[in-house]
Design a protein around this nucleic acid. Structure first.
Lengths: 214, 214
DNA sequence: GTCTATAGAATGATAGAC
DNA sequence: GTCTATCATTCTATAGAC
């Protein structure tokens, strides 16, 4: 389409759309994280995005459409992180890698994690389909890998599902409960050094806990 | 007060108040868990409690007052659980006990846990005072105990704070993310046996992870 | 202590001029 | 693509009869 190419080049139409959509999505992630779906208001999102409320509805017809987009974004980020889990058949390396990436995402995308947490707490009224398809399949396949490692005597005989929940819980806690952690850190966000220490502690306890290291 | 005693005996006034307050608090816990503070509506709470909305405002003048009461309840339950942590100076026994009780609370009070999670995700707009006083003091004193255990060579040298966050995250996950866990369990809540297994797995990984057991 | 009716404010979404 | 004005709905909270 000639007009779209030209638009991107000279800053009209498509370029404007792209910029505004980004601003709206960033604002929506923040407001949904802070208030949940029901508590978030489109006017607040528009205010944070710096546009009139009517424009928000021009780009995203409904609050729900906007919300689903935000949820999809964090879910895809996590899925991509999970891929690294498969790149390697050494349990120590694979799990270390996975825990580290999950911790890093909690640090870089805390808002998305919070939106997800809100959605699950509310029993996934909008995204139950993801849970029953993609997430269920992903989990089943990784459980199988861990079971094989156990069968090969490379890990202690723990139930892989509860290990997985533990990894999710612990890593996402640094995003979802980040405010509590900061408060207990004398009202300061964890420094880079502190966060590195947390990441290391989490990894060590889990790997030692499943008998992967001494 | 003679009238109050009599009321409790024959089912009028004070007895009615007690019954209605209980019903409202239970309904409020459920609705706040499902929608967060901003998303919950007083009419929904009244509906779940089975009373007209105007009566709800008769017992609890504002939505915020009701919310604070719900939050205080779960916080006090956790504080009581934490006491058991102190009853014993053996790290294995104390931590096992604490993890078990925290897991049991996730099983028996999932809604309260969710309300708390929502509040923290939203950066504690209502209960920041608890975080800065009671929770901070409690944490500091327990960190000191764990540090002593480490100094005595009874635990591996991990940072006690990150261990504590791990225990909170992992145990509360079974309440806050219970819906996700059920979905991955083929849409069934964890059975008693499965939950016992989860509890055992969590305890084992953590205790082994911090070098308390082999 | 109960409950209908409603005030007054805020919400999601749209119309229509620019 | 922007934005003011506004509609229909829903919200918290209260007034006032019973």
């Amino acid at each position: 389409m000639a007009w779209a190419r030209q638009a991107r080049r000279n800053g009209s139409k498509a370029a404007i759309r792209e910029g505004n959509e980004k601003a709206i999505l960033a604002a929506a992630e923040e407001v949904f994280a802070d208030y949940g779906f029901a508590g978030a208001t489109t006017s607040k999102i528009a205010e944070v995005a710096g546009i009139p409320k009517a424009n928000l509805h021009y780009y995203f017809p409904t609050k729900e459409a906007l919300y689903r987009q935000v949820i999809e974004n964090i879910f895809n980020i996590w899925l991509a992180a999970a891929a690294s889990f498969d790149d390697c058949d050494d349990p120590i390396e694979a799990l270390t890698q996975y825990i580290h990436i999950k911790m890093d995402i909690s640090r870089t995308h805390p808002k998305g994690s919070k939106v997800w947490a809100n959605e699950i707490i509310q029993r996934a009224p909008m995204i139950q389909d993801y849970l029953e398809t993609t997430l269920r399949e992903w989990t089943t396949s990784r459980v199988a890998v861990i079971e094989r490692w156990i069968a090969e005597g490379r890990l202690a005989p723990i139930d892989p599902r509860y290990l997985m929940y533990m990894i999710w819980a612990t890593t996402q806690h640094y995003a979802d409960f980040g405010h509590q952690i900061s408060t207990l850190n004398n009202d300061h966000d964890l420094s880079e050094a502190q966060f590195a220490k947390a990441k290391d502690t989490v990894t060590q306890i889990i790997l030692r806990g499943i008998g992967a290291i001494k």
